[in-house]
Design a binder for these strands. Structure first.
Lengths: 329, 329
DNA sequence: ATGGGTCATGTTCACGTAAACATCGTGCGA
DNA sequence: TCGCACGATGTTTACGTGAACATGACCCAT
């Protein structure tokens, strides 16, 4: 910066003014500084700037990793939205839900320089004795209103309701559910809504099965379900588990959708090209991410924590894997 | 830091020594400082530290986003490997391969504080007039030896050879190929190796088709292939395109694998649970990421650029989607 | 005993930037 | 004509840390 100032024949403060687009600089001076910057290949030093301003223009993002489709899409969308707002994203992966791993991750994030933290899976915050750094804004991409942080998420309850109603409307007497892991807030909200929707419709509520989001766990659940008499419709809490259920059904000699209707959740890219293609729920990750980032930036720039909680409506995508139950149902 | 020093009754330099684990501190003093740090909730200021040391303990990671399975897995693995080495990862997504978007992304990355840059898809570097910041180490997770940066990747050529040989060994006269996009180095290396392997075996080399990694593009290619007489084996450059091909074949009344054998590449989680399950190639992203990070850190800490290029062997996973060709072949 | 070496600790300074304040010139109204 | 306000620019300073150097106590060999 000093070199640039010398070359342009001005003080370093004027260079700083040009870099930050302040108004009080004569056009001619500005041009001289800009061309000096170009010639010298000047790049402002983030560390020095952050040291002075206390801002890093960086968001921390904490998750269990990109293994699941939903996480990967969320992280991708948040990154892109943050970028549009002039922020970069610093990723931290928590390797396991042990107290130690979570603490390490948060330490790393605050030792690193971030202006705010996006928590992708809210159960990370359930870790005992987790003391968040006091003045760092937090926004959750999942979770529960009880958690005292702003939250933006797909309306999981609406999604599960759409699925359940779709199947009931097709004539199924009830709907079986393969839920996600018990500690996932998203899984819990889907399961609760499935349960409530069945109740409302006076349908029997069958025993719920749990998976871990993986196709393998869906397959295991499917093998169990295939032995249940009268089972004609399954709602799996994500597409991968739905796929596992499908395979188990096919292996058990059930036709889809003639004998068994199956619905997933997420609309992964593959779902439209399965045979049969999968009825599912599509989440709008881009809108969710956009809101997360704007909520974040509001907090960072105003210093206040809006208690806002926003839900983004998902969309039921009906494909080949659902139909009316077999006549003998 | 000053507060900690005051509370412990030492100079700030001594605090710095304790924080950085220097040897020249008496045990009793160290304890006093540590407890003061704990009481005051002291956290070192990254910006100030970076300003002095010129190091950020952060890697920049640049990609087109997490949409593809390979990218997501690579980013995930690199993040975790970097974390183990005490680094965090700053993600930048290039929204499109326009000169402007790529330049913006790189600007953001160097304006931000990173010690090195991991380029996930090497074609990003093909952008005209891209001037990398001169002294920032770069490691590619893909690409070509010609590119003058260290590179670590799965041995794409070996993977493609394994697939092609597998199909030829099953008795297929030749193998059709649905390649990835033309500007992808990985896709190109797979295609070249497929071509070379057919040549070696004196098999005819059918016209290659191109997709864009998506299941949709695989489906389009599949519809074309279904009309080709004598077509009994297809190697798709990734699993999603293979899935699209499968659907097109099924819709055209071909049975898999009885009429047509299909192989993918990547071993996405879903592949084992398709019906039929998909023969594919599994890449070891964790090993690749581990090497990328260690190569990166070598460069950062020694300041020299090893011209190393490392290939990690992938593994052929044979499942239900491949078999001998139909007798009338 | 005395000088040199070692160890714990303190003091000073620089890193690159932006905020706060200071200065200077210019134009305009009284 | 004079003073004042305002705009452009310069000067000084602080941000929190670690490197380099300085200090002082203590020990050991001569």
């Amino acid at each position: 910066m000093a070199d640039v100032a010398a070359m342009a024949g001005v003080s370093s403060q004027t260079v700083s003014r040009v870099v930050n687009n302040r108004s009080n600089v004569e056009e001619e001076t500005r041009q001289r500084v800009l061309s000096a910057m170009r010639v010298l290949g000047y790049r402002p030093n983030t560390a020095a700037r952050a040291l002075v301003t206390g801002q890093f223009r960086t968001l921390g993002l904490i998750s269990f990793g990109l293994g699941s489709f939903g996480n990967a899409r969320t992280v991708d969308a948040v990154t892109k939205a943050a970028q549009r707002a002039g922020y970069t994203v610093n990723m931290i992966a928590v390797e396991s839900q042990t107290e130690r791993a979570v603490h390490e991750a948060f330490d790393q994030l605050t030792v690193q320089a971030v202006d705010g933290i996006v928590v992708v899976e809210a159960q990370i915050l359930d870790t005992p004795a987790l003391r968040l750094p006091p003045d760092v804004p937090v926004v959750m991409a999942d979770g529960d209103v009880s958690l005292r942080h702003p939250m933006v998420d797909t309306d999981q309850a609406l999604g599960a309701r759409l699925v359940t109603r779709h199947l009931l409307d097709l004539g199924h007497k009830t709907v079986w559910h393969v839920a996600g892991p018990e500690d996932s807030y998203a899984a819990r909200r889907r399961a609760e809504s499935w349960h409530a929707t069945l109740k409302e419709a006076d349908a029997a509520v069958p025993q719920m099965l749990f998976g871990d989001w993986s196709a393998a766990s869906g397959y295991e659940a499917g093998r169990v379900l295939a032995r249940r008499p009268g089972m004609t419709a399954v709602f799996a809490a994500n597409d991968q588990m739905a796929l596992g259920v499908m395979r188990a059904m096919i292996q058990a000699g059930r036709r889809i959708p003639e004998d068994v209707s199956i619905v997933g959740f997420d609309d992964i890219d593959e779902s439209a090209y399965l045979s049969p293609s999968l009825t599912t729920v599509r989440q709008d990750f881009d809108v969710v991410a956009e809101r997360i980032v704007s909520l974040m930036i509001d907090q960072i720039e105003t210093g206040t924590a809006p208690a806002a909680t926003a839900f983004v409506a998902p969309q039921l995508i009906v494909r080949e894997s659902t139909s009316a139950p077999p006549p003998t149902g």
